[in-house]
């Protein structure tokens, strides 16, 4: 496995939504089955260029999420490959039964794109803040659940997602996000990427918290603590082998996710370790709270999802494990 990352984590100008649109156009130009569905959020998602290029392959359903996922299921049953986008809150909560029944239970091939995960909803506030979508989707049988970490990974994974038959929930930052990976990195669905090796503590992270975990690893290094950082971008199927390897190598595990600590990454890792390799753990994530309005950095501090929170969690876990 080849992983190549930037030395310094910083936000680049390219936005996830533009990378999504460009890679979808690229896919659609090679596969006429690809379609794009949305619920009046095409402007917000930056997918108007797709509509301009393939007007006959776009269905903007209007504000009707339940209907959209049913339409997507019907198109899939007719051999199309629909990518259906709405905000993650609406995909996971408002249209859950349609995604479960018409898409997944019916064995369809619908790619569900839920944007603005957790604190990335920022000024849209608590009503739009999906802190629970991964946990909801993870419980649907046969559903693949992923959160691409940056634009490079997204571009690499899009063809894989399109080719894999079955329902996929892709949680996606809409606007700018940290660039982690350099070209040449290999991304495999279901395989976590080890971003940094270490022996004292293992940090397993997803999405926004991956960049924060790398910053936390630097801060820990300053305190003489060596952290192994793992990007678990496929929540389901999770990489059991890497989880166990990291636990055995470090003896202490931190999970970090832009989500409730229940039912998503923290729970998945805890379940794997409880069954295979019991290991002391601390979960960084949202603790049974609703979201609220604010800029992303403020919210990261408010909900204790940033590098400082990850460092504190690591120190607490190491102290407890003495």
């Amino acid at each position: 496995m080849s992983v190549n990352i930037y030395d310094k984590i910083k936000i680049k100008d390219n936005e996830m939504r533009f990378a999504f649109c460009e890679s979808l156009i690229d896919l659609a130009s090679r596969d006429e089955r690809i379609m794009l569905l949305d619920c009046d959020l095409m402007s917000a998602m930056g997918t108007i260029p797709f509509k301009e290029r393939f007007p006959e392959r776009v269905i903007d359903c209007g504000i009707q999420e339940a209907n959209m996922f049913g339409i997507a299921a019907g198109l899939s049953a007719s051999g199309k490959i629909p990518f259906a986008h709405t905000f993650g809150v609406f995909a996971s909560r408002r249209a859950l039964d349609q995604i479960f029944m018409s898409c997944a239970y019916a064995g369809q091939n619908v790619k569900i794109v839920g944007s603005d995960p957790g604190i990335c909803a920022a000024l849209n506030g608590g009503t739009h803040m999906a802190f629970d979508d991964l946990g909801i989707m993870r419980n649907i049988p046969e559903m693949t659940v992923i959160e691409p970490t940056d634009t490079l990974m997204l571009r690499e994974l899009m063809p894989v997602i399109a080719k894999k038959h079955g329902c996929v929930y892709m949680r996606l930052v809409r606007r700018k996000c940290e660039s982690i990976y350099r070209k040449g990195t290999v991304f495999t669905l279901g395989k976590a990427n080890v971003l940094r090796d270490g022996i004292d503590v293992g940090i397993i992270a997803m999405g926004y918290c991956v960049g924060q975990s790398l910053i936390a690893a630097d801060l820990l290094k300053g305190k003489g603590i060596s952290a192994r950082v793992v990007d678990m971008f496929t929540l389901k199927p999770a990489d059991r082998e890497e989880t166990i390897r990291t636990a055995k190598k470090t003896g202490v595990i931190i999970t970090a996710e832009n989500h409730q600590i229940n039912n998503a990454l923290g729970s998945t890792v805890a379940e794997i370790l409880a069954e295979e390799c019991p290991t002391p753990m601390v979960r960084v994530g949202v603790h049974d709270m609703f979201g609220e309005v604010g800029e992303r950095d403020y919210l990261a501090e408010r909900f204790e999802l940033n590098a400082d929170a990850i460092v504190k969690a690591a120190l607490r876990a190491l102290e407890r494990n003495k």
């Binding site: 209907n67 049913g70 339409i71 049953a77 349609q98 029944m101 019916a106």
Partner: peptide, 30 residues
């Protein structure tokens, strides 16, 4: 539809067949 020969769409949660039928009809048009 995964079990029975001749069934074009899985149903059971009321209301959903209306949307999936629209999807099938739309695909026929496309």
């Amino acid at each position: 539809m995964r079990l029975t020969n001749g069934i074009d769409m899985t149903t059971g949660s009321l209301g959903q067949g209306a949307s999936t039928a629209c999807g099938l009809a739309l695909a026929q048009k496309i």
